[in-house]
């Protein structure tokens, strides 16, 4: 037993000889803390897209919107408008969604968000109904803006 302890201590001594960690490969300084910056100003609240983006935060726990980002619980929604429902490669849609025959337009999205299970019975999107029409319109406008 004592042998193993001594070995371990020797290992420690060796590991302590390493050099200090490397400096950053790249460092982009935007500004200092506390400094205000134009880029950091809050979006205008009455802008429809901003409203939609804000409302979408609730959706973002399941849906990514950055191009190419991995799917979460729901599919990536970048470029969703114009896409055939259930068509994103690599995402396990419900059978109901792949067979829905929908091609997402703003109107189709609006109808779906108003009542997901009504529009596509059997959809796996259990949460996500946006009951408020104004919010729904804003979310759809935001989704429509997500394209290359």
């Amino acid at each position: 037993m004592r042998r193993s302890v001594l070995l371990a201590l020797a290992t420690l001594a060796l590991s302590a000889c390493g050099s200090k960690a490397e400096d950053p490969v790249e460092q982009i300084v935007v500004r200092k803390p506390g400094e205000s910056a134009a880029a950091a100003s809050t979006p205008v609240a009455d802008d429809l897209l901003a409203k939609g983006k804000a409302a979408f935060a609730a959706c973002s726990s399941c849906h990514a919107v950055v191009p190419g980002a991995a799917a979460g619980i729901g599919p990536n929604l970048h470029g969703v408008v114009g896409r055939k429902a259930g068509s994103l490669a690599g995402f396990a849609y419900s059978e109901a969604m792949t067979k829905s025959g929908i091609t997402w337009s703003e109107a189709e999205l609006n109808a779906f968000l108003a009542n997901p299970a009504g529009k596509v019975p059997g959809t796996a999107m259990a949460a996500g109904r946006v009951a408020d029409a104004e919010r729904r319109t804003a979310v759809v406008a935001y989704l429509a803006s997500l394209k290359n």
Partner: peptide
Amino acid sequence: MDASAAKAMPGVLQILNLG
């Protein structure tokens, strides 16, 4: 690393590539 979009995002102070 491509941080061109990120550095314009709100609240960002620094972006670091530490290897």
